[in-house]
Structure formats: structure tokens, C-alpha cells
Amino acid sequence: MSIEEQYRTRAKELLSGGAVKMVIGYGKGSNASRRRPIFISSADDVERLVLDDACITNLSGYLVSEGLLSDEKRVAVFLRPEGIRAINILAAESQLDADQIVIFGFDVAGNEVKALKGIHVEEFSDVITSIKESAPEAAEEELFEKIEKMSPQERFSFWQEEFSKCIKCYACRQACPMCYCRRCIVDSNQPQWVNTSSHTLGNFEWNIVRAFHLSGRCVECGNCDRACPVNIPLRLINHRMAEEVLGAFDHFAGTSKTQEPVLASFKKDDSETFIL
């Protein structure tokens, strides 16, 4: 039985027995190469679920949709390892109760899909540890290497050109499972902390604020990068910040549901005096 069929069977069992109220997965998209998020609430609809190498979008962000989990019922969701890490972070940041989440784990190597064993988030810790040890893909990218070798001025010019393309559609924010704030700082207008204009300064403000806010929290699922309609290579800036946090604090985001948020916690005996 293919993984797709196995997971359809499992979804059918869970839905018909009432173990979960909904399965969030992938369905056919508007052309052969596209998959789209679908929400299955009836066991009769599980045939709509698709699982193949085109299932890329990290679906974990849908779990924190307003009201979805407030009835304390369980929801099942198809997740790649990055999505599973996102569940850990959302749980650690008190955004959801990980026990309510039933995971249909999978990973893609080349164009082959393999199932990841486990149901609850804590059962995937080996998978997450192995990712921490192998270098994430962005690091191998030629463009990333090129930016690393640039002088600060050159790097500034590079990002200036990229950010000047930004139209502030906030697709990066909306696609990101970590951007769950009910009211983002840029939407706060009393006072207006951040310019709403998408001129170069306003675009810098937005993109840099977001990069900092994601430091130590980004799982590098790539949702923002793929969502960006003007093709800003957001994955690179987030990867750089993830490396920084890993180097400085040995913090790899999303290893467990009790992991302390690295930039939102402190220790009384911190060597930096400004902390306390």
C-alpha cells in the first residue's frame, strides 16, 4: 500500500471513529504540478487527500486559526519535519495544546515520499535531532555563499535591491506558522510603530523586524519564500539568523514542546549585566 493510501485509511478511521474532527492535508491543485491545502471533516471525503513530492506547503499555521482548537477536539495534520518542529514551538509558546494534534508525518527525498513514524509530536524527536545534525539545504545554496562573502556595504546593497521589490502584501507573514499574532505590530496604528508605506525604508523596517522576530523560532519550512509574489529570497535571511542563534545559544528551534524560547527567556545568572 502506498503512503498516500495508508494515510487515507488512517484518516478514514480517525474521522469515522470521531478521534479527530478534521484532517488538514493536501488535495489536487489547479494544475498537475500544484497541491492545495484541504480540510476534511467527513470520512467519505478522504479520497480527496493527495500525498506526493509536490506537497510542500507547511500546513501547521492553520492549526492556530481563530477558534479551531478551542473546543478541545483533536485535529490531524499532514506535516513534514519542519511542520512538526513548528508544532513544538507553537506548543512551547502556549499557542496550542500538542495533545490535540495528530500528526501524519512524511518527508520527501528526491521525488520519493516516505512516512515518518509517530502520531504525537514527542515521537518525532529522533527525526528532528537528525535534521539538526545535517546542514539545512539553504546553507548549500550558491547565493547564500555569495552573500556571506560580501562586504557589509555590498550585502546592504543586495538586500536594499531585494527589499525595494517588496509590495507589503504580507504574504510572508500570513504564510508563516510563527506569525500568529492576532494583531501584528505593523497593523497597530495607535501609535503607528512601523510605516505602512512600501517605500525602501518602510520595506526595510518590515523585513528586518520580521527577521528578528523569527530568530530562534524559524523552522525554515520555506512558506514565506514561496509565498512571496515578488521573489525576495527570504529563506536566506531566515537561515542566516537560524545559524546565528545556533552558534550563539546552541538553540535549534522546535526540538521539543517544552523547549524554552531562546530570545523570550532569561537566566538570573546571565553574564550580560543588562539582562537584569
Partner: peptide, 20 residues
Amino acid sequence: MRCIGCASCTYLCPTCHCFD
């Protein structure tokens, strides 16, 4: 249900014209 509420569609649209 799957709409994430970004403005990619409206900002790329040639006819969408709302402004603030």
C-alpha cells in the same frame, strides 16, 4: 477556508484599486 489573508492577489491585480 484555506485563504491565508495576504494581499498577493489584490496587489498583483491590474484592476484592484483600493488605497489608504
